[in-house]
Nucleic acid binder design. Structure first.
Length: 285
DNA sequence: CTAGGATCCTGTCAGC
DNA sequence: TGCTGACAGGATCCTA
């Protein structure tokens, strides 16, 4: 679930709390959630937080990097006596007592605790050498981020999948990094392209719009703070839906399209729940 | 190489 | 109430 904007928001938020802090102890509650020896992490200071696509990279002293992928339901929650920061899959674990039954890894730092929670256990923390990050199989296979990609490059990557529905193609991290189910739907709506359209049938104009849509929708989400504690809580303190801050179609089925008033509908494309405006995004051109 | 489908895991929700 | 199946903001592995 956490896509590029969510991970970037976590990176920025966490940086203020754990950069330059020393990790004193690592507690692993679920073995499959932590890959590599935890001893390489303990007693190391955090030097920097980076991101590639949906992967968070935490560089430590001694040439060690922790790669964290939240997949569908991962969250990172920092707690200290004075501060609290949470991001990722938004649930009440942002506020409740931790560790809880969904806590997979707990990092004790000099200045607080960092919890890696993950309901479905698809996410992971992986310990690698900093020099090995670029050659890691997952990182290596990633395409560029939408902001770093030219039209020609995007088109070339898209056209490797001419017969696939366009939605499946843009969810492929080897085509463009960071796009997940939310921003796929939002980008396609922005471009006025139906998600079932064959990738090979898109015009240059539509491809241009799609790239622009990915950039704009993800930037808007980063600007609004992604799925962090702050956006999960409404002004009155009750639980809110951060998607409503920027999503035009995602989880808005039954509501009128912002552009034309037609009812947004939910369909299934490439095995994923998909949200469209049937008027703005025609299947037939 | 790509395409399509199953799979990892847990929780929630709709329908009977 | 209890059961069952579908589904979920992701990515990989397998087979064709």
């Amino acid at each position: 679930m956490p896509e590029l904007p969510e991970v970037e928001t976590i990176r920025r938020g966490l940086e203020g709390f754990i950069k330059n802090a020393k990790i004193t102890k690592v507690k692993i509650f679920c073995d499959k959630s932590f890959i590599g020896p935890k001893e390489l992490v303990e007693s190391k200071k955090v030097l920097a937080l980076r991101r590639r696509g949906k992967a968070l990279l935490i560089d430590l002293e001694g040439g060690i990097t922790m790669m964290i992928h939240l997949r569908m339901t991962g969250q990172l929650i920092f707690r200290s006596d004075n501060d609290s920061f949470a991001g990722g899959h938004p649930t009440d674990s942002f506020f409740t007592e931790l560790p809880n039954n969904q806590t997979r890894v707990e990092f004790e730092l000099e200045n607080g605790k960092l919890f890696f929670n993950d309901q479905r256990k698809f996410g992971f923390v992986k310990v690698i050498e900093t020099t090995e990050v670029e050659s890691d199989k997952f990182i290596k296979s990633l395409a560029k981020e939408p902001w770093d990609m030219t039209f020609d490059e995007f088109k070339k990557n898209l056209m490797r999948h001419k017969t696939q529905p366009i939605k499946a193609t843009i969810l492929d991290q080897k085509v463009v990094a960071g796009v997940g189910n939310i921003y796929a739907d939002e980008s396609l709506f922005y471009a006025g392209v139906h998600p079932k359209r064959e990738t090979g049938s898109l015009t240059d104009d539509e491809i241009e719009k799609l790239l622009e849509g990915a950039r704009k929708t993800m930037q808007a989400s980063i600007d609004s703070g992604g799925s962090t504690m702050k956006t999960y809580v409404k002004a009155d303190g009750t639980k809110g839906d951060y998607l409503r801050l920027f999503a035009k179609v995602f989880r808005r089925e039954g509501e009128p399209c912002e552009k034309c008033g037609t009812e947004i509908v939910k369909i299934r494309v490439a095995g994923r729940g998909t949200h469209i405006c049937p008027r703005c995004q025609k299947e037939q051109r």
